[in-house]
Design a protein around this nucleic acid. Structure first.
Lengths: 215, 215
DNA sequence: AGTTGTTCTAAACAGACGTTCAAAACAACT
DNA sequence: AGTTGTTTTGAACGTCTGTTTAGAACAACT
C-alpha cells in the first residue's frame, strides 16, 4: 500500500481497520495487520499496548468519524417536520453503515457481534443515538401508548437498517452490487415510508383496543 | 455435563453447538468442545474429519431441527387469511431464533456473519423460507408494484425479526431478560402489525404517485 | 476364547499466535 | 560531535492451535 507520507501509527490504524473488518477480532492477526501496514510487529505493542488496544482505538476512530460525516440530522432544512427528521435519521444510519462497509466493516461486525471488552464503549457511543431516535418517535407515536411499545418501534426501525446493510445475509448470498448513493436514498425512503405506516398501524391498533375496552 | 446415556458423537455435537454459539467459528477451540463433551480431542477427526466438518454438521442439524419444531405455518387454522399467514411466519421465525439462542446461538451467528465455506449450504436452507415469505407478500402488496419494492418489504420484515433476537445489540447492552413464550408472542404481534401498516403505506404511496403521474 | 471391526484415548507434531526484549535508526537539541 | 528521547525493528519466547499417529477399550460374531 502507500507506505510513504503517513506515519507508521496511522498506517497501522488503517490496515487494522481493514483486517479487523474482513476477519473479525479473533480471525485477524497482528502479523497480517503489520504486514499490510509495512511495519514491524512490535509496533502494535509500542503504540497500542496490545491487540485489544489497537482494536479499541480503531473502533472509536471509525465510529466518531462516521458520525461526524453523516450526523443523524443530515441534510435537514431549518424547520423540519418529525417525519423528515425520522427520514434523516434512517438515511444517515444507512450511510454510516455503508461507509463502514467500504473499508470499515469492523464497525458493522462489532454492531452485530460485539467484543466482550468493548460492550461498555459501545453502549457509550450508541446510546445517544437511541436517545435521538426515541425522541423523534415520541412525536409520532400516540403519547398514551406504553413506552415498551415505542421501544418496539425503535427496534423495528434500527433492525430494518441493520439488515439492509451490505454485510447482511441477503446481499451476500444474492451478490447484490455495492450500494451507490442513489440506491441508499431509495432504500432510506422505502424504510421511512414502511416505518411511518407501521407506526400509524400501531397507533390505530392501540386506539381500537382502547375503544373496545371502553365500549 | 451428562457424560452418560448419549453416545460420544452426540455429546460432541451438543457441546460444539454451545461453544460455536458462544465463541464463533474462529473463537471456538476443539479442545474446549471436547472437554465439555468429556471426550478425547481425536474424536472430532474420527467422526467429522476436522473442525469445519463438525461445524457444518452442527449447523445443518440445528437448522433442520428448528424448522421441524417451528415451521413457517405454525399454529395456523385450516383456512388462514394472508395476514394470519404473515403472523405465523414472523412468529415461527422469532421462535426459531429464540430456540437457537438457548443453546444454539450458532445459527444466529451464522446468519449474521456466515462462514465462507457454508454460504452455499446456508443459501440452500434459507432460500425456501424467503420463497414462502415473498409468496405471502404477493397477497398483500399491490400487484402493480415492482418486484424490487416487494423485496424491500421482505427484507424489512426479516430485519425486524433478526434484530429482535436476544443476540442483538440492544438486548446485550440493556440486559433484557431471556424471552418467555408470551413475550415472543407479544413481539410477533407487534412486528406483524407494524409490517402490515408498512405494507399498506407502501401501497398507498405507490397509488398516490401513480395518480399524480397520470393527472 | 479368538477374531474382526468400530469407537475412543493419550501423547506428540508442526505451525501460528500474541507478546517481549535488546538494540538499531532517527530526530532534536546542546 | 555528543547527548537524549522517541520510534522502529528483527529475533526470540512461551503458549495455544488443529491435526495426526499408534494403540487401548469395546462390542459382535464365530
Amino acid at each position: 500500500m502507500n507506505s510513504d507520507e503517513t506515519c507508521a501509527r496511522d498506517r497501522l490504524l488503517h490496515a487494522a481497520a481493514e483486517v479487523f473488518g474482513e476477519c473479525g477480532y479473533k480471525g485477524a492477526t497482528v502479523r497480517d495487520i503489520c504486514r499490510r501496514a509495512g511495519v514491524g510487529i512490535a509496533l502494535v505493542n509500542y503504540h497500542f499496548r496490545d491487540k485489544e488496544g489497537l482494536y479499541l482505538e480503531v473502533f472509536r476512530n471509525l465510529f466518531t468519524r462516521a458520525l461526524r460525516e453523516y450526523p443523524p440530522d443530515m441534510g435537514l432544512n431549518e424547520s423540519p417536520s418529525t417525519e423528515e427528521r425520522l427520514h434523516a435519521f434512517i438515511r444517515s444510519l444507512l450511510y454510516r453503515l455503508t461507509m463502514m462497509e467500504g473499508r470499515h466493516a469492523i464497525m458493522l461486525r462489532e454492531w452485530l457481534d460485539p467484543s466482550p471488552s468493548l460492550v461498555k464503549l459501545h453502549a457509550e457511543l450508541t446510546n445517544p443515538l437511541l436517545k435521538v431516535l426515541s425522541e423523534i418517535l415520541s412525536g409520532l407515536v400516540d403519547p398514551h401508548i406504553p413506552q415498551e411499545q415505542t421501544a418496539h418501534c425503535a427496534t423495528s426501525i434500527i433492525g430494518q437498517c441493520m439488515f439492509y446493510s451490505p454485510h447482511s445475509m441477503r446481499f451476500r448470498l444474492q451478490a447484490f452490487p455495492m450500494y451507490q448513493e442513489r440506491q441508499i436514498d431509495t432504500i432510506a425512503r422505502s424504510i421511512t415510508a414502511f416505518s411511518l405506516g407501521g407506526i400509524r398501524a400501531i397507533n390505530e391498533e392501540f386506539r381500537a383496543r382502547g375503544e373496545s375496552h371502553e365500549g
